[in-house]
Design a protein around this nucleic acid. Structure first.
Lengths: 134, 134
DNA sequence: TGCGCTTTTGACAATCATTGTCATTATCGA
DNA sequence: TCGATAATGACAATGATTGTCAAAAGCGCA
């Protein structure tokens, strides 16, 4: 009956996942992160990694990206909403901010009576270096 | 050795897939479309549906959406770029136009020197009716 | 129009990320 | 410290998508 059920317990595994996320740059798949944890000697089950990431994604602590043709990629989310500009050749990622986009999305949703709104946006392109190579 | 190998042959199956797409509104999964084709008496393999959809997506004839937690959804692309407002409960879809978003994406990409830019955006929320039910 | 090369098809198997299960373990509040 | 309860993790299950390859169909050319 607890409305704000903060039943989030603080476990070693959860901290471990947070730690790797904090110490790595860029996006990584759940399986990647799992492998990193094993290399560090942490003993964390793959299932747990998945569930932890889901939880973190729910609370907005991490970003999730679903690139075409692949696994979900996770990344420590710098607080605040933002989007990504991704090079489709080398995978380089640039964070971009677009307050205008945020408010536009909200407005659109509002006009149609939608509530509890979220949105995803990704920009794909070829970065300067990759463009030069071809 | 043909550089522009337009080796696209015109088969019954391909037309059939195009036809269902043309005559249905909204998004449908590959499996959906396959089922519709069977109902019509068309004899098309599931594998072929997948491959045809991929091809159509490559040429930009159809939209692809990857909602969280599910299959890919395909839709005949109404010419012109647009985005979608999707109810995460009942799946209802509303098309929304946002020229501002388009140009913003282009500008952002340009500022970072990215070329050959495309982008995806989806807005998720709960539509008025579903919100009332809960 | 008929022939042959090449693409396409389609049934089935294989893949693989993600989720479900459930007994065991660890955490947190009292 | 103790007990209720959430979290863990090994494993199985799921299910969409892709690979395979022999058989069939399209298209260009004579």
């Amino acid at each position: 009956m607890n409305p704000e059920s903060n039943a989030q317990r603080n476990t070693k595994q959860r901290s471990a996942v947070r730690d790797v996320l904090a110490e790595t740059e860029g996006f990584h798949s759940a399986q990647d992160l799992h492998a990193m944890l094993r290399d560090r000697g942490e003993r964390v089950g793959l299932t747990t990694v998945y569930r932890t990431l889901q939880g973190l994604a729910d609370t907005g602590e991490v970003d999730v990206m679903r690139p075409p043709g692949g696994e979900h990629l996770y990344r420590r989310c710098s607080q605040g909403h933002h989007h990504h500009l991704v090079c489709r050749s080398c995978g380089r990622t640039v964070e971009v901010l677009g307050p205008a986009v945020e408010s536009w999305a909200e407005k659109m949703a509002g006009e149609h009576g939608f509530v509890d709104v979220s949105h995803t946006m990704e920009i794909f392109g070829t970065c300067p270096e990759c463009a030069q190579k071809s």
